[in-house]
Every structure is written in C-alpha cells, then in structure tokens.
Amino acid sequence: MRKIILSTIAVATLSTGAIAGLQAQDAPALPGQMDASRVTAGTYTADSNHSLIGWRVNHFGFNDYFGIFGDVAGTLTIDPANLAAAKVDVTVPIANVTTASDGLTGHLLRPGKDGGKPDFFGAEPAPARFVSTSVQPTGETAATITGDLTMNGVTRPVTIAAQFTGAGANPMSQALTAGFEGTTTIRRSEFGIAGALPVVSDEVELDITIAFEKQ
C-alpha cells in the first residue's frame, strides 16, 4: 500500500510539472519587457492615451481620496550611454482632472465666489508643466529626477523617484515604447492652492505612470 501511495504522489507531481510547463510555453511574451537594453538613444513623445498622474490627499483625518490627471503630453530625450544627460519635459492639463464624484470635480474647477480666489484650481486652469534640471541614476533601472514644476502660476523645485518599467515595440503602432513610473510628494500651499487647509491635507502624493514612444 505504501508503494502505491508513493507512486500515486510521484505521478501527480510529474503531471503537475508537465501542465505548468505546457502553460508556460503557451503564454505569449508581453511586448514590453523590463530590459533596459531595449531602450535606444533618441527623443520619445508621451503616449497621452496611456500616461497618467494620480494624486492623493487626506480628508479630515478620516481617510484618503484621490483623482487622476490624464492626457499627459511631453518628451523624453535619452541616451542609455549617458543617462545623466536625459531630459524630461511634461505638460499636464489640469482641466482634465477626473474623480469619482461630479461634486468634487466641480469643486476643484469652480471659480471663486463673487470674483474671489477659487478654493482649488478654478475654472479653465492653465496646464501644469514639469521640466527636468538633473537626472541622477540610482541603479540599473532607477533614477532621481529633479526639475521645476510650474502649477497655478507658481514654479517650485520637485524631486521624483523614477523607475523604468519596460520597453519594446507597441504591437498596435510598432513604435518603440519605453515605460516609466515615478512618485513624489508636494505641498499644494506652495503653489497657492490652499482651499480647506488644514482639514484637507497640504501634502499631495503624486503617482506617475508614463509611456514614451520613440519618434
């Protein structure tokens, strides 16, 4: 009986391994791979349909709420042989902010009462723009990007922790595409956006994901 049980376990183990092997063979490779050697020197343009800036603030000390800026545009100039010389210039249309609440979105974009200063961005806000001033590699696939962020008519230095996430040919356009993610935290009061302080947090966490296509 013991031999029968051991034989059954062995057969089951071999069968499981064979199935896993077949599944691995059948699974198609993703077009983008985390392989920095796929990135070639040149100028890349942001794929605005797949580039987003998420933001997150704390509400009354109860919980966080968040939203997204879409339609990000801009360029990345990069030479893998000289990453420190890379340049990033990105524009974010503030008016395209998205939240899960129509009331909150309207509050962010409504004009000030009786011609006064708006609580947040106000109607028809100018796009925000980030222009890098330095790029310092911190590993094979990571870098610290410092630059000037202009928002609400104010320019302040901002540092982004950036991570390369994948590169390859886009199967739809065949364009060589390189993806990056980044995080940073800013204080909105430094950009003249002081509505509901301090019960809505001054600190705003930004979560950045951008795909750049080579031109």
Rank of each mutant, 00 (worst) to 15 (best):
F69A: 03
R110Q: 10
T75H: 14
S101D: 13
V11N: 03
R38S: 09
D89S: 09
E181L: 05
F66K: 10
I9F: 13
G116R: 08
G179Q: 08
A95Q: 15
G153K: 11
V158E: 12
G106S: 14
A95G: 14
F180L: 05
I19M: 11
S7H: 12
S15P: 02
L104W: 03
S101M: 06
F66C: 08
P157F: 05
E205A: 14
V131G: 03
I9C: 07
E181Q: 14
A10V: 12
L104D: 04
R2I: 12
D119V: 12
P93E: 04
I9H: 02
A41C: 05
A161P: 04
I210L: 13
E181R: 14
G61V: 01
A162L: 07
I68T: 15
P111D: 14
P93Y: 05
E203R: 02
I68N: 09
Q33G: 04
I78L: 08
D148G: 00
R110F: 00
K117V: 13
L176H: 02
Q136H: 12
S189M: 10
I94A: 07
I68A: 10
Q174G: 12
K87E: 05
T184R: 02
D26L: 07
L83C: 02
A29Y: 04
G74H: 08
G122A: 01
S101V: 01
A178G: 07
L104C: 00
R2G: 12
L22R: 11
F62D: 03
Y65W: 15
V154W: 04
I5N: 06
G103R: 03
G168L: 09
L76C: 06
V131D: 07
N152F: 06
E213P: 12
T99L: 11
T165S: 06
R156D: 01
F69C: 07
L22A: 11
T184Q: 01
L109M: 05
T75M: 10
D102Y: 08
I78K: 01
I53G: 01
T138I: 09
V158I: 15
V92A: 09
Q174T: 15
R110H: 00
P93V: 01
A27K: 11
A95H: 14
T75D: 13
T159M: 12
P125C: 02
G116A: 12
D102K: 14
A84T: 15
S51V: 04
M151H: 03
A142I: 05
G195S: 09
Q136A: 14
N82Y: 00
Q163N: 12
L6N: 00
R188A: 06
T184Y: 00
T184K: 01
I186K: 05
V57Y: 01
T77Y: 00
F212N: 04
T40M: 12
T144R: 09
D71A: 14
S134T: 03
M151L: 10
F62V: 08
Q163D: 13
Q215Y: 03
S37F: 08
T105R: 15
G61C: 01
E124H: 12
D35F: 08
L104E: 04
G112V: 05
P118I: 11
D207C: 06
A123T: 13
A12I: 09
F69N: 06
E190R: 11
D202G: 02
F164S: 07
I94P: 02
N152T: 00
R110N: 07
I210R: 03
K87R: 09
S51C: 13
P171K: 04
F121C: 11
A161F: 08
D26A: 09
S15T: 10
S201P: 08
I78V: 11
D35K: 11
T177L: 10
